[in-house]
């Protein structure tokens, strides 16, 4: 029963993952990604990590994907053809890049998981130290895995700062160029932005 469910969830996961890359509209990409997260949560549940499954739903499906949707709706991105006009790389080139980097990332994660698996194998842990035990999990997270945990959060913070800096620079550039070419229009634009 559990094994069949695992294969079904795994297959669905792959289908949704393909859907993320294949979808013509960014919104459908996000929805497919959401499906992937749900399948992953199911797999975690099957593997006996309900806490991880719940956190997956809570953090990724409940918060991060909502932000993704928020951004996509704000930008009002159309289909891929519209996107291509703005992007530097051609669509196929970008897809290749995405595929390669995903594979590289997957490999990295796989290596890390293999490294970690000895420590996190639920079967080798004594029963009272099961991963479900929050106290134990928290203790591990704040002692043995303190450094990776903090490093990961630092990485996320750095990414956030970098994105804000990039976005800000782009906007300033756009403002400068338009100010040089047509001051009246830039004034109008600025008003629009400010408003």
């Amino acid at each position: 029963m559990a094994e069949t469910l695992f294969y079904v969830l795994g297959a669905l996961c792959v289908v949704f993952a393909i859907g993320v890359v294949r979808a013509r509209m960014p919104l459908f990409s996000v929805l497919n990604l959401l499906g992937t997260f749900f399948c992953l949560a199911g797999i975690y549940l099957l593997a006996g990590f309900p806490f991880l499954a719940a956190t997956q739903l809570l953090v990724y499906a409940g918060a991060i994907m909502v932000l993704f949707l928020f951004v996509i709706m704000l930008l009002n991105l159309g289909d891929a053809a519209e996107l291509e006009k703005h992007a530097g790389l051609s669509l196929s080139g970008r897809r290749l890049f995405v595929a390669c980097s995903s594979a590289a990332l997957l490999g990295l994660v796989g290596l890390g998981a293999a490294e970690m698996s000895t420590a996190f194998d639920a079967r080798t842990l004594p029963a009272e130290h099961a991963l479900d035990d929050l106290e134990h999990l928290a203790a591990l997270l704040f002692s043995r895995y303190m450094l990776p945990f903090e490093a990961a959060s630092l990485l996320l913070l750095a990414t956030m700062v970098a994105v804000i800096v990039l976005a800000k620079r782009q906007r300033e550039q756009a403002r400068d160029t338009s100010a040089a070419s047509a001051p009246a229009e830039s004034q109008r634009k600025e008003n629009g932005v400010l408003r």
Partner: peptide, 25 residues
């Protein structure tokens, strides 16, 4: 009844926003 029920409620009820967002979009 299961050990993570409080987390479950928050996780699942947080998904309700998708209906609102997608309905709006």
């Amino acid at each position: 009844d299961f050990p993570l029920s409080a987390l479950y409620v928050v996780a699942v009820s947080g998904l309700g926003v998708y209906g609102v967002i997608l309905g709006g979009w």
